[in-house]
């Protein structure tokens, strides 16, 4: 395949970035998108040009490290997949492909396609846990959980923390990400005890970190590789409201 790649290059957080065009004819439809970038990088390295930096690790859609804007979509075209699962079969010979990092105030660019997502960790540190010490747990069956609730909690818990929801949102809101964790714990009896403090602390931290407000456009849900549903946001709002009226 012959491709024209327009890739965002930025030396570091302080440098000014720009699109650089690469005419690249070393792609094959069998490659994943990241393997295509690997191949481009091999070419660049041999030409003694700094390769394109991007985050990645598991390369099987579960660690959440990868993520870039491809032709205007987080994780590129294709529904419910991460960048590492994006196949070059989705593209045609002769295509021009734009590749950019996530754009959000709370996710500053580190280099090229790498952004700093520690804001996500900070939100989780603010309250994304159930306070229980090692060794103090009762037998697992001491507290049965309705299967439907457990399944729903699981569906929320599969968020991989990639940040595509923030990147997709015109306000750069982190609501989908935050709501997934809130919902997971709100649905489980073990999580109810700290539910009020948790939602307030996490939302407060989210606001402090410069994420935008949620205006219910649903772009996050549409681009989320793990199909985290907007229902989670509704649940967060409910939890937040309840915590406010009866703290």
């Amino acid at each position: 395949m012959k491709l024209t790649l327009k890739i965002w290059r930025q030396k570091n957080a302080d440098a000014k970035g720009k699109f650089v065009t690469y005419d690249f004819d070393g792609a094959s439809p069998d490659m994943s998108f990241l393997e295509m970038l690997d191949a481009l990088n091999t070419k660049l390295i041999k030409a003694r040009i700094d390769p394109v930096a991007f985050d990645h690790d598991c390369r099987e859609g579960i660690c959440g490290a990868c993520g870039m804007y491809i032709n205007g979509h987080p994780h590129g075209p294709g529904k419910a997949i991460t960048t590492c699962h994006l196949s070059m079969r989705e593209f045609k010979d002769g295509d021009t492909i734009y590749v950019e990092p996530w754009r959000a105030k709370a996710f500053p660019v580190v280099k090229d396609l790498i952004v700093d997502r520690t804001a996500f960790d900070k939100i989780q540190i603010a309250g994304g846990f159930i306070s229980t010490n090692v060794g103090s747990a009762p037998d697992s069956h001491a507290l049965p959980v309705e299967k439907s609730k457990a399944d729903e909690a699981f569906n929320s818990a599969v968020c991989i923390g990639c940040g595509a929801c923030v990147a997709a949102c015109k306000n750069a809101s982190a609501m989908l990400f935050v709501s997934a964790k809130i919902a997971q714990f709100a649905l489980l009896p073990q999580g109810r005890i700290e539910a009020k403090e948790r939602v307030q602390a996490m939302v407060k931290k989210m606001d402090e970190l410069g994420f935008g407000n949620c205006s219910n456009t649903g772009a996050c849900e549409a681009e989320c590789p793990k199909e985290i549903s907007l229902v989670n946001i509704a649940r967060l709002n409910r939890e937040f409201y309840c915590a406010k009226v009866s703290p």
């Binding site: 159930i130 229980t132 009762p138 049965p144 959980v145 457990a150 399944d151 073990q190 999580g191």
Partner: peptide, 8 residues
């Protein structure tokens, strides 16, 4: 106890 949603 930490809220890991194992299958039930």
């Amino acid at each position: 106890a930490m809220g890991v949603p194992f299958a039930r």
